[in-house]
C-alpha cells in the first residue's frame, strides 16, 4: 500500500509495491486509448504541479494523468510566478498549502527539495525530479516498459550508459532495478561516474560501451546533462559522441530482442545516433505512453483510497 504516502523516491518502495504499481498502471493504459479518456476516480481533487526546472513530458504527463482521473490540475513554473520575484521555496510552498491541494508534484534543481516540501505541507508530495537525487515516476515507467517486453524484470541484463553522475533517472533506476533483481551494468566516462556506485547499487562497471551492451536485454541511454556540468567533465561533445554515443552497429551486440530506452529529451547525435532513435529497437515513445499510465496509477493509489 502506498495510499496516503508521499512518493519521494524508489528508495522507499519494496519489490511488492513496485509490482503492484506496475500492474495498476497496466490497467490505466486502456483509459488513454479510449475516445473518452477520463474516469471519475479523483473527481474534485486538486493537484498542483510545481516545476522549478524545464520539462515537457514529465509535467505534461502528470497533468494529463490528473485530468484523466477527473482531478483539477494547476501548473506553476518558476518563471512567471512569484519565484521570479525572489520568494523562498518555504514561502511558496506554504502559500500553496493554504489553497488546500491534495497533491503537489514537484521538480526542483536541489536534491532533497521534495522531502523539504513534504515536511511542510498537508498535501501528498510526488517527486518529479529533485536535483541529482531521484525521479521515481521515470524509473517506474521504464520498468513498466521493460516488463511489457519481457514479462519480468528479474534476471534481465540492463545496461545504463552515459552521464550517471548527474542523472536522477539513473539513480532511481539503479535503486529500483536492484530491488527487482535485474543485473545492471553501467558505462560512463570516469568523470561522470560517481564513487561508491558498485557498493551502493549492486551494479557492475564496464570499461566501455561495447562491453556494457554485450548480450544486454535493455539499453538505457541517458541525456548528457550539460546544464548540470559546471567544470570540465568532458573534453568536448564530439569526443563523447565517438566514445559513448550509441550507434546501430553497437546495438547489434545486444540480445536480438534487446530494446533501447531513453528518458528524453534526446541530444540526437550525442548520446544516440539519429537512426537508432527511430530504429526498430527503440521503445522511447512507448516510454512516453507508459509515463501517463504510471502517473495515473501513482495518483490513484496515493489519493484514491477511502478517506481515513
Amino acid at each position: 500500500m502506498i495510499g496516503g504516502q508521499h512518493l519521494l523516491g524508489m528508495q522507499q518502495l519494496d519489490s511488492e509495491q513496485i509490482n503492484a504499481i506496475l500492474s495498476t498502471a497496466q490497467g490505466f493504459l486502456q483509459v488513454s486509448r479510449r475516445t473518452i479518456k477520463k474516469v471519475p476516480s479523483l473527481r474534485g481533487r486538486t493537484i498542483i504541479t510545481l516545476f522549478y526546472e524545464a520539462s515537457t513530458r514529465t509535467r505534461m504527463s502528470f497533468e494529463l494523468a490528473g485530468k484523466r482521473l477527473s482531478a483539477d490540475t494547476v501548473n506553476i513554473s518558476a518563471s512567471g510566478s512569484s519565484v521570479s520575484k525572489g520568494e523562498s521555496l518555504h514561502d511558496t510552498v506554504m502559500t500553496l498549502n493554504a489553497m488546500q491541494p491534495d497533491a503537489v508534484i514537484v521538480r526542483h534543481p536541489a536534491s532533497g527539495a521534495a522531502a523539504f516540501i513534504a515536511n511542510r505541507i498537508d498535501a501528498r508530495v510526488l517527486n518529479a525530479g529533485d536535483g541529482q537525487h531521484e525521479h521515481p515516476s521515470q524509473a517506474l515507467l521504464d520498468m513498466l516498459t521493460i516488463r511489457q517486453r519481457f514479462g519480468k524484470l528479474e534476471g534481465l541484463k540492463v545496461a545504463i550508459v552515459g552521464d550517471i553522475a548527474h542523472s536522477r533517472v539513473a539513480r532511481s533506476n539503479l535503486i529500483g532495478l536492484a530491488k527487482m533483481g535485474a543485473q545492471v551494468r553501467v558505462a560512463a566516462p570516469k568523470t561522470l561516474l560517481p564513487r561508491g556506485l558498485v557498493e551502493a547499487y549492486q551494479c557492475t562497471i564496464c570499461p566501455n560501451v561495447e562491453a556494457a551492451l554485450e548480450g544486454a536485454d535493455v539499453v538505457m541511454a541517458l541525456r548528457l546533462q550539460r546544464e548540470r556540468m559546471e567544470g570540465a567533465f568532458l573534453p568536448n561533445l564530439r569526443e563523447y559522441a565517438i566514445e559513448y554515443g550509441i550507434s546501430t552497429a553497437m546495438l547489434d551486440r545486444c540480445n536480438p530482442d534487446g530494446i533501447l530506452m531513453h528518458p528524453g529529451p534526446v541530444n540526437r547525435g550525442v548520446e544516440l545516433s539519429p537512426e537508432v532513435v527511430d530504429g526498430p529497437r527503440s521503445v522511447i515513445l512507448d516510454q512516453v505512453e507508459n509515463g501517463v499510465a504510471v502517473r495515473m496509477a501513482l495518483l490513484y493509489l496515493i489519493l484514491g483510497g477511502e478517506p481515513a
Partner: peptide, 22 residues
C-alpha cells in the same frame, strides 16, 4: 466491464485495488 475506477467508495486503506481490463 471493470468498474474499479468508477466506484464511489475508493478502496480500503489496506487494499491494493485491482484495475482490470474492460
Amino acid at each position: 466491464l471493470d468498474i474499479t475506477l468508477y466506484r464511489d467508495d475508493g478502496f480500503g486503506p489496506h487494499e491494493w485495488p485491482q484495475v482490470g481490463i474492460t
